[in-house]
Design a binder for these strands. Structure first.
Lengths: 230, 230
DNA sequence: CACTTTTTTGACCGATTGGACAAACGTTAG
DNA sequence: CTAACGTTTGTCCAATCGGTCAAAAAAGTG
């Protein structure tokens, strides 16, 4: 009678291969499972982004999600599992803007669009940015393979695109890698250091205004720098 | 006979200059106290920078400092006290480069020097940078007053200097606050996201080379941007 | 409806957390 | 030498940590 019962709902990826008919990992979740898992991830994003993995507690996440700790652990088998799901989901969308950098387009327009998209992400998904930043500060223990694999490959590819533009004289000759780094830095700064930005600028200027100012400044900077003409 | 004895060594009050007979709180520490406190702060910097305040444990710090936990707590009355000392000491030096921005000097030279100094700090004191970043990510609960006070005042002052340069036509007209933010972002990025930078660039290019490349790129960016001269 | 499956909860566990404390040890001035 | 002081350690504590488990409560399902 005793049956192998699933300990907690759905693995984040395939774990045991093909116990039943379904070969690949298709969790097959109920309405409640989908809803609750989403609520947990939402709450966990908030907490992990603020305190990092070690600093976050399951109780904290459970309370933020409005449920008891054992209940939360019914939907995710561990704190680690929540974080892993979050990170995985994040990286999927995080690199999208860079992927869209188009070799064929006008270089300055492409770069300007890229900067704007990254800036919009900092504005619209600041917690995701902070989650990522936290992971970096801790030495990226959980995503190092991804950094050295997928991320590096993508950056290499796009750096080559940029280098092509440089060789064609369409943008100035400089280091394409550090160009990409600088765009990441300047845009994510508004999410990661939001508190500081707000403290310095004061509360008067709303977030819309701040981001518009930032976009204008960055456009000026990346186009023509600071040195006055003539 | 029972005397009010000091629970743990000395308040975190900054070591004042050589002036003797200071009326206010002068800890008056032994050689061992000075040494051990320094070792603790060194270890704590490492741990706090990696895991943030909540994620760091006293045991971890004690082990990194090569002493027992009770022994550590003899020199600092709490985890909070260590962190506070670290933050206080950090901020003292952190803003120094900006303070040195000189109204009288040549604007482009001044800005270039500022960028270089900040970049050197990212290279030489990456843990301090990460400690600060962690504090920001957590919403700056411990240094908010300083951000809104001292930091903001300094930035306001220097923004005015920069605006003066703009009005005189010596640098291009743009937002001085976001200019400062962008310098912070691009330079600190090399400390805070060091792991990512390393993963993307590969291990071959040593840190000296990386920082030289970064310096060259930033100089190009801030001087003339990316658009090729027509 | 009865029956099965899913969801929720309370009680509990061993490990770790920040920290207290007195006893023991070391050092040094008189 | 000895008393006073500074330093170190072992032991202990209450609170919290991540996580388990059985049983109760809901929610489907025929």
């Amino acid at each position: 009678m005793r049956e192998e019962l699933v300990q907690s709902i759905g693995p984040e990826a395939a774990e045991s291969p093909a116990v039943k008919a379904a070969a690949s990992a298709e969790p097959r979740r109920t309405r409640i499972q989908i809803e609750k898992r989403e609520r947990i991830l939402e709450a966990a994003l908030e907490v992990f982004a603020m305190h990092g993995f070690r600093g976050a507690t399951i109780d904290q996440i459970a309370e933020a999600a409005g449920m008891s700790k054992p209940n939360l652990l019914y939907y995710f088998r561990s704190k680690e599992a929540i974080h892993e799901t979050l990170i995985q989901r994040l990286l999927e969308t995080w690199l999208q803007p860079l992927r869209e950098l188009d070799e064929v387009g006008d270089p300055m327009t492409e770069l300007r669009s890229y900067i704007r998209r990254k800036l919009e992400m900092a504005r619209d998904f600041p917690r995701e940015s902070r989650l990522f930043a936290n992971e970096m500060l801790q030495g990226a223990p959980r995503i190092m393979p991804l950094l050295e694999g997928e991320l590096r490959a993508l950056v290499d590819e796009k750096a080559e695109v940029i280098r092509g533009w440089m060789k064609a004289g369409r943008i100035v000759r400089t280091d394409p890698y550090h160009l990409i780094f600088s765009i990441w830095a300047t845009t994510q700064h508004y999410a990661d250091f939001d508190v500081q930005v707000r403290a310095v600028l004061g509360p008067d200027r709303g977030s819309e205004g701040r981001f518009e100012d930032a976009a204008r400044f960055l456009e000026q900077l990346y186009l023509d720098g600071l040195r006055p003409k003539a």
